[in-house]
Design a protein around this nucleic acid. Structure first.
Lengths: 108, 108
DNA sequence: CGCTTATGTACCTTGACGGTTACGTACCCA
DNA sequence: TGGGTACGTAACCGTCAAGGTACATAAGCG
């Protein structure tokens, strides 16, 4: 979780993930869409790999990266522990537009 | 988003958020549950504030912090763009289990 | 074999970050 | 008004992370 959030805290790495969400890509293709040089990208890919967010497969000289979404699912789930809080806020904001539902949970 | 993910990438700050999820707390109370000294906590609180993750209210000499869950909702929502991916994986897992197979994943 | 392509690693530099101590400030109270 | 309480900020330091340049490696190609 720590490693995943750290990995997500960087714009370049988020860009890579978004690209990989549309399908696999070689390291070179990923370099092409980032404003930094190849070795930098290579290092970002290593971080993503170590966070379990991507997989690599080798094909001839090319390394083909693919996304591994499980850790993202974990973060998503972790955030749900705050979900009641922001839903509360939305309720307040809407001032009970939806009267049917209320009192999901109490904070204290 | 950038600032929020950065803020979340630190264990101390996540601890603070979890504490505040249970209700408001003074700076002093938050200091008490972290292994670091007061000025450090103060700086973490500043980061959380600037990321929009907490609110402060002053009451006499005390600063009372409360959580602002909206940015968390945004991250939660942002992660949903990957949701189909991890659901795919789960589906795949389930089918494999159902078939009694456990081959390599192949998302071609 | 060399040569090119594709990519990672080593190494260095710079800047941000987390933590500490010391200090400043605002508020309450006797 | 002086002193204690509750915080924040400033200055400083060590570490880590991100970027770049130069080099290494490994596979296909003529």
């Amino acid at each position: 979780m720590e490693a995943v959030l750290r990995a997500l805290a960087d714009e370049s790495r988020r860009t890579v993930l978004e690209a990989l969400a549309d399908g696999e890509a070689t390291a070179g293709e990923l370099v092409a869409l980032l404003p930094i040089a190849r070795p930098g990208v290579s290092r970002h890919l290593r971080v993503l790999r170590e966070a379990g967010l991507v997989d690599v497969r080798q094909e001839a000289q090319r390394r083909i990266y693919s996304i591994r979404p499980q850790p993202l699912a974990e973060v998503h789930q972790w955030l749900e522990r705050y979900q009641t809080l922001w839903e509360q806020r939305l309720d307040a904001l809407h001032t009970e537009v939806a009267r049917g539902k209320h009192e999901r949970r109490q904070t204290k």
